[in-house]
Structure formats: C-alpha cells, structure tokens
Nucleic acid binder design. Structure first.
Length: 567
RNA sequence: CGGGGCGUAGCGCAGUCUGGUAGCGCACUUGACUGGGGGUCAAGUGGUCAGAGGUUCAAAUCCUCUCGUCCCGACCA
C-alpha cells in the first residue's frame, strides 16, 4: 500500500473525551472515528486491524471444528419472549417496532436465534456435539458507554454456541474452547489470564473469563501467589475463620453524636475499622428486611449476597425511610444487638470479638460487643469482596489483586435455553432430551483496545506483529526529489509485495520527522529507511518499533532480513 | 435515574464573571526556503458561538427550556 493511496489520518491532539490511553491513541492514530456516544466508525486502518484479529480467531475456531455461520442483527420479540429474556433483560436491550408495529430488538447476543436453528436442524444425538460460531456486530444499549471501543454500544463479537447430548460432552467441548481461547490470545500477543467467573444473568453453571491485564481494566482479578487459582473478584471466595475469641470487655454504650460513617466512629473511639462492623440492610424476597454484616474495612460482594436464602435477587438495598420506620434509626446507626431481622454475617466479621457496632439508636454505638453473648443466632456466610492478603480459597498461598479487561467469556449454559425454547433431540434410547448448551464469546473490537493498553509508549502504539495494520513501513527520505531514492524505494516495495509482506511505503511529500512520527504512532513493527547517504554505500537502515536502536543492513539483503523477522 | 462538568473552525482552547467588530495554536490551501525527528517565512480557506425562546438599542456573554457529550454513582453476558 502506498500512503498516497491510503488514508493516514493521524492527529497530534486527541479529543478531550478520550480518557484512557488506548482510546486516545486509537483516535490519534486514526483507527476510529466517533459518530455518537458508544458508536464508532472504523477507518481503513482500523478495519485492517480488525480483519487481522478476526483471521486468527477464525483459524483457531475452525481448527476446533466449530462451524461459522451468520445470524441477523435484528431479532423478533417472540424469540425473546419465549426465553423470558424480553422481560428480564431490561433497557440494555434496544427494542423497536417495524412498519407493521411488530416488536423487534437489536441482538445483544444470539442464544435465542441459535437455539431456534438447532431446534430446526438438529434432530438426532448422532449430529452432536456441534459448535456454531459467528463474527458479527452486537448492540447493547449500555447505561454508560466509555473508554472508546472498550465499552461501546455497538461492537464486534465472536460468539459461539455448542450443543450436546449430555453434560459430559459439554464439559469436553468447554475444555476444547478453553484451550482454543488460550491459543487465540497467545497468537494475539496478549498478556492475559483465564479466571473463574460468575455466570451472571446469562445463567448456567461453570464459567471462565479471559482477562487482559491492564491498569485501566474495569474488573478486579484475584490470584493466588502460590497456586494457579485465579478468579474474578465477583466470584473469588473467602474462607471461614473459626470461632471468635472469648469476650474480654463488657457491653457498653458510647455516645457518638452525629456520627454516621465507619471512619467517623473509629476516629472518635480511637479504634481500627477492623474492630468494628457495619450493618447493611437489603430487601428480602417477602418485602421484609435482611441485615448483612461486614467488618468495617470490608466491602459487600453483591453477587454473593444476592444468592443468600431469602434475599432478593438482584440485590436491592433498602430505602432509608423504610429502615427508619422498622428499625427506628438511620443507616449509620444500625447494629446487631437486639436486631430482630435475619442476619447474615461475613466470616471475617463473625470472627471478631469485643467489637464496635451501631446501637439501633441515632447518636449511640455499642463497644465491647461479642456475638455469643450479645446478639441473636446469626448465619456466617461469604458475602464480601476478597482483599489482597486473604488466604487463597484453595488453601495455597495468599490473594493478590490486579485489574483486568474482559476479552473472552466461556459458559456452560446447560439446558436453560433448550428447556425454555423446547430444543430437544432424540437420544440413543429413542427418547427426546433437551440439549445441553455452551456459549463462548470474544470481544473482537475490545481486543484491539486491550492490546493497545498493554502495548504503547510515549510515541504511540506498539502493535504485536500479528495484528499490526502493516508489517513493514518503508520511509524514503526525499522520495519526491531524489530519483535514486525513489527508484530504490520502489524496487524494495515491489520486492516486499512479491514476498507477501504487508508493506506500507510512505510516499507522501512530508518531512522525515512527520513520517517517523506517524509510523511510530501507528505502531508498525518494522521500518526501513532509504536515503541518498545510504544509497551511496549500498546500505539501508532498519529499526524495530520494539527497540530504540537502528541498524544498517545491506540493501540487497533487506527483503530477506524482513522475511526472517516476520517468521 | 441521581450528582457534577463541558458544548465557540476538523482537533486543542481563550473570550462568558463585567453585553458592544468572533480570536489563538495545530491541521488544511498556495508560494518560497528547507529536507534524517512533527522546520521557517508569507499569503489564504474555514464559524447559524449546540438548538429554541426571552431580556436588551445591542447577546457567544444575562434568563428559561431543550438537546448533545464527558466524569462519579447505581447497572452490566
């Protein structure tokens, strides 16, 4: 490709709505262009990158025996009503009517459609297992689109759906997909980790997420420092800590006028938050109130809490007016002594002795509280987020926490959709059974942002070779004035094309500094520079985007030198 | 949905408080010089100041409403 035939739309300054480095660089390098909130056009150079990512995904998916197909973006409401998700999904599902006033939605995912296809064409266990995938545009009307294509409303996703006669077969394909995902992310040159995940609203049993490690990641990932344990913080478990110590202090009232927060209580009473508890009130399933108790320095894990018996799922914090009416105090003064509603206590809080808590009266707190002596029977549970330093749930090592960008997610769905949509096959024994399903997603466009988050410097993007928009850039100095440079550069360009190198020759009438800066901003991995001074002695200059040093090589060997680098 | 910010040329911004000729840098066009790290000089192009209504002799500027956009929170396959 010649620069003069292409669109190089680099800019010095990114728009001020670009917050994170990948978003800024994608705008500055001219990969994307914003159309509206969460909607981006991919300019020619951005599309080249997408196509390279897709190629790797296709190759590995095909290798896993998955079959590519393509389903519609627009989907009829009937399908979603059948799976009950028309009601469950909420405003993230973009709904609209056609000219006949029939309800439709833009597909945020395709379980319903693929299940319909499977229902139609898969009749016998002999056709199973089978795994369909597509690479296609999804639309989710995100509450808050942000970070460019990292969390956009419209995005490209590879989604796969497998069908099985039983759970065993599903488990086998799940393992194959786990390995396939590792192969894909390896080839994409990403620093990533598979982690245990909550399966969320999609339902099902077993689930792993694949996270690219990056400071800007929206998820917290927990690792053991001494084993392979890794889990999303939503899912990472904490362990019971045994019986608390025997009481040493008497139960006493402390006056705490106007004090509401844990910080204020602890400052006033000169204790550590680790010796206090906080009591959160949530809605129960019968319009009742339920107390969740955490150590003062810990955070509630809403995913875990929503799964407790009698607690409304999804979790809903109680209104303060309702709390005031039923418990007689405001949020900051709730405590566990004489609290007459169901109480779930986090393991760490249940392990405390002689602690501080609210008294269920404003402006007073209890000190010297002890569970056995001062509170009614409680249920100890795992309801908090793990923190760095917690013991790993597998008993080996301690937990470390890092940030991650979710680029892949695999689920074992079981029969959730085949059941509600009546997708069955005839088994070996001649009886109809619901098919087990798995589903497997990769965020194609998010991968590009994630890769840039991991690979950049003060000059711009440093693309891994596998997804770089070009493998090589030729920068001729004085191309438009020096006929000798032009002849050599053109020859080199033709030779590269002959070797199937994805090469860009910068034949613009620009000063060298601009061409260097653009090639670095775009993250092209290899660069050859031709000038009159080099031409004099039959040399050419090579520079890798990864290394600061330039090297001189013989002009005649330049192409084979690059071919070697690309292998 | 709640709280906050912003909206002036393609991009980054000043001007708004205190009403009176719409500006700067980058980019873009033309020319000259220059030619290995975003160069210099000169001359240009480009704006319903987000939109609507109001106050006023006069509104980018004051008032009201609407829209867009970003941040924080709640939400999230």
């Amino acid at each position: 490709m010649k620069s003069s035939d292409f669109l190089i739309s680099t800019v010095k300054e990114a728009p001020n709505d670009a917050q994170i480095i990948s978003h800024q660089l994608m705008i500055r390098a001219g990969l994307i262009s914003k159309l509206a909130s969460g909607l981006y056009s991919y300019l020619p150079i951005g599309l080249k990158i997408i196509q390279k990512v897709e190629k790797i995904i296709r190759q590995e998916m095909n290798k896993s025996k998955a079959l590519e197909l393509l389903m519609p973006v627009a989907q009829p409401a009937e399908l979603w009503q059948e799976s009950k998700r028309w009601e469950e999904y909420g405003p993230e599902l973009l709904r609209f009517k056609d000219r006949h006033e029939r309800d439709f939605c833009m597909g945020p995912t395709h379980e319903e459609v693929i299940t319909t296809i499977a229902k139609q064409y898969i009749r016998s266990y002999k056709q199973l297992p089978i795994n369909f995938y597509q690479i296609q545009t999804k639309f989710r009307d995100e509450i808050r689109p942000r970070f460019g294509v990292m969390r956009s409303r419209e995005f490209i996703m590879k989604d796969a759906y497998s069908f099985h006669i039983d759970k065993k077969s599903l488990g086998e394909t799940y393992q194959v997909m786990h390995q396939t995902y590792c192969n894909i992310f390896d080839r994409l040159g990403l620093d990533y980790r598979p982690v245990l995940a909550d399966s969320g609203a999609i339902g099902g049993d077993s689930s792993h997420e694949f996270h690219v490690l990056a400071e800007s990641g929206e998820d917290a990932i927990c690792f053991s420092d001494d084993s392979s344990y890794a889990a999303n913080i939503e899912r990472a478990e904490t362990l019971p800590q045994g019986e608390p110590n025997a009481p040493k202090q008497e139960l006493e009232i402390a006056h705490t006028p106007g004090v509401k927060t844990i910080d204020d209580v602890c400052n006033l009473l000169k204790i550590s938050p680790k010796k206090s508890i906080k009591t959160l009130i949530v809605e129960g399933t019968d319009d009742n109130l339920i107390a969740l108790v955490l150590r003062g320095d810990h955070e509630l894990n809403e995913v875990k809490a929503a799964k407790l018996d009698g607690v409304k799922n999804p979790l809903q914090m109680a209104e303060e007016t309702k709390v005031l009416k039923q418990l007689g105090c405001s949020f900051g003064s709730i405590g566990v002594v004489n609290l007459d509603i169901p109480i779930f206590v986090d393991y760490a809080a249940a392990h405390l002795s002689d602690f501080v808590c609210g008294s269920n009266k404003d402006d007073e707190h209890y000190i010297g509280v002890n569970w056995q002596r001062d509170s009614k029977k409680i249920v100890a549970s795992d309801i908090r987020n793990v923190v760095a330093g917690d013991p790993s749930p597998d008993g080996k090592g301690k937990i470390e926490i890092k940030r991650g960008i979710e680029v892949g997610h695999i689920f074992q769905l079981g029969t959730k959709y085949s059941d509600s949509m009546n997708a069955n096959v005839i088994g070996e024994d001649g009886r109809a059974v619901y098919m087990n399903m798995g589903c497997y997603g990769i965020g194609v466009t998010r991968i590009i942002a994630a890769s840039i988050e991991q690979n950049n410097d003060d000059r711009g993007i440093i693309f891994p070779q596998a997804i770089a928009p070009f493998e090589l850039v030729i920068v001729p100095i004085n191309y438009n004035k020096s006929s000798r440079v032009k002849a050599l550069a053109d020859q080199l360009y033709m030779d590269c094309i002959e070797q199937n190198i994805d090469v860009l020759i910068d034949d613009r009438k620009e000063r060298p500094g601009i061409m260097f800066a653009d090639s670095e901003l775009l993250g092209i991995p290899h660069r050859l520079v031709i000038s009159d001074t080099h031409a004099d002695n039959g040399k050419i200059e090579y520079k890798s985007r990864m290394h600061p040093d330039k090297v001189e090589i013989d002009f005649k060997e330049a192409v084979s030198f690059i071919v070697d680098k690309l292998d």
